[in-house]
């Protein structure tokens, strides 16, 4: 009792003031919540995924609520990386909160082009690669679904920026561990897992799919056990690699579970929509837990699951 825990965490070269980030797509470009949330307190803000040109996204309906979760098919709507760098970043960096730029593309060249633009900008702490994107050259198959493709895009982006590189894995991959290993081999500093799981929802009365694109990505509390399973497996296979756990976090306890399973840090996605100040409460909850249980740092708790 009574220790003042150190909440700082290091993911390779990237040091964050605390382990609680807001996930890509869950916090807009970073400024949207500033009247409701003290954004300077966050471990980091991950931007919505940025592409080279503005993207309009998919037709509506793009979202549907499901039991303890939701499906989305936003289709990477964003104003493009230049608009972010010009109009948002200068304001955002004045808050002093670490900014992680999530990037996406339909070709390897698009990824590297976006990454190099971010590399030249001032005030970005790291780049996060969203590999759950349709690959034009492969008929729309996701980049992150295959080890060779993953390695190809990761090493290309690695050449394009000196910033710490986080690779966000898609759970659609047949064998997540081999994708994870390929990403690290190709130069990832840390891995983030997972993105949304594919799913559909049907309206029986209307006999229609509920999303215009039919298939969407499942997120929210419903995915937590599967997301935690993937994180734990990858941690066991690659114990030295810094991992960021994401999927279904809606309380400090959920976040602590990820840390116990081996995560260095966590991200909160869907729950932000419902509870905008949740991330701040999770930070406070982690601090209280560490202090009450006599852990002097997040690192001391990480992976500290008892075996029996």
């Amino acid at each position: 009792m009574g220790v003042t825990p150190d909440l700082r965490v290091s993911l390779g070269r990237l040091t964050l003031p605390n382990p609680v980030m807001v996930a890509a797509g869950a916090f807009g470009y970073g400024l949207e919540y500033r009247d409701l949330v003290d954004i300077a307190q966050l471990g980091a803000i991950v931007t919505r995924s940025l592409t080279l040109a503005p993207r309009m996204g998919n037709p509506p309906p793009r979202v549907v609520e499901t039991p303890a979760g939701m499906l989305n098919a936003i289709g990477l709507q964003n104003d493009g990386v230049d608009a972010f760098l010009l109009e948002i970043l200068p304001q955002l960096r004045s808050y002093g909160v670490p900014i992680i730029a999530s990037i996406a593309g339909e070709t390897v060249e698009e990824y590297t082009h976006v990454a190099s633009k971010i590399d030249r900008a001032e005030g970005v702490a790291a780049v996060e690669l969203n590999l759950s994107c349709p690959n034009q050259a492969r008929g729309g198959m996701e980049f992150g679904i295959e080890a060779t493709l993953t390695a190809q895009v990761v090493s290309a982006v690695r050449q394009a920026t000196t910033l710490p590189l986080i690779v966000k894995l898609s759970p659609n991959a047949g064998d997540l561990v081999s994708i994870a290993a390929a990403a690290v081999e190709a130069g990832a500093d840390a891995l983030c897992l997972v993105n949304t799981f594919p799913g559909v929802a049907v309206d029986a009365r209307e006999r229609r799919f509920r999303l215009a694109t039919k298939v969407g990505g499942l997120s929210g509390p419903a995915i937590k056990p599967i997301a935690q399973y993937h994180l734990w497996r990858v941690h066991q296979a690659l114990p030295e690699v810094p991992l960021i756990g994401v999927g279904g976090i809606s309380s400090a306890e959920d976040a602590l579970e990820y840390i116990l399973l081996g995560a260095h840090a966590v991200q909160i996605g869907t729950a932000n929509y419902i509870h905008p100040t949740l991330a701040l409460e999770v930070i406070e909850g982690i601090r209280r837990y560490l202090s009450e249980h006599g852990f002097d740092s997040v690192e001391a708790l990480r992976g500290a699951l008892l075996d029996s």
């Binding site: 949207e32 509506p60 793009r62 549907v64 609520e65 709507q77 932000n272």
Partner: peptide
């Protein structure tokens, strides 16, 4: 449909014509 109601998720897209031409959500 509105998951967040506060402009972050982009779930509540409505197609509009832009004054400068073109369309956007």
């Amino acid at each position: 449909p509105m998951p967040c109601g506060i402009g972050v998720c982009l779930g509540c897209a409505v197609k509009v014509a832009l004054p400068e031409g073109g369309v956007w959500y």
